[in-house]
């Protein structure tokens, strides 16, 4: 039941931010919403209620690393689209491995 609630809240917040980004122009400004704290707001709100503030602040601490990985991910997507002529969907999916490598690498080297 709790997982279902988490799923609904997460889906709703992410959809809201995505729709907001979709209604904005120019596209470079709308792109800011690709890095909106949608998952974070849903998760942190629920975590504060269930596990307390200190637990949630620890999650926020490592989220800084995740955000840096997101910046690198987006930069790689641009390169894949413009230099390697990949379609946007394919580039965005392929670059997910970069996010995972950066985030997990930083976790192993710095955070653990």
């Amino acid at each position: 039941m709790q997982l279902m609630f988490r799923f609904l809240v997460g889906g709703l917040v992410v959809s809201l931010f995505a729709a907001l980004g979709g209604a904005l122009k120019p596209k470079s400004f709308a792109g800011l919403f690709g890095a909106s704290p949608s998952v974070a707001l849903a998760t942190l709100g629920l975590t504060i209620a269930s596990n307390g503030k200190l637990y949630a602040s620890q999650e926020a601490h490592s989220m800084i690393v995740g955000a840096i990985a997101l910046g690198l991910y987006s930069a790689v997507v641009i390169q894949l689209i413009m230099k390697h002529k990949l379609h946007a969907g394919r580039a965005a999916s392929a670059a997910l491995s970069i996010w995972i490598i950066c985030a997990l690498g930083a976790w192993l080297l710095v955070l653990r």
Partner: peptide
């Protein structure tokens, strides 16, 4: 929480 927190910045909207 340190490991789970990484995924709060997962590219959920962009792809």
């Amino acid at each position: 929480p340190i490991f789970g927190g990484l995924f709060l910045a997962f590219p959920a909207i962009f792809p």
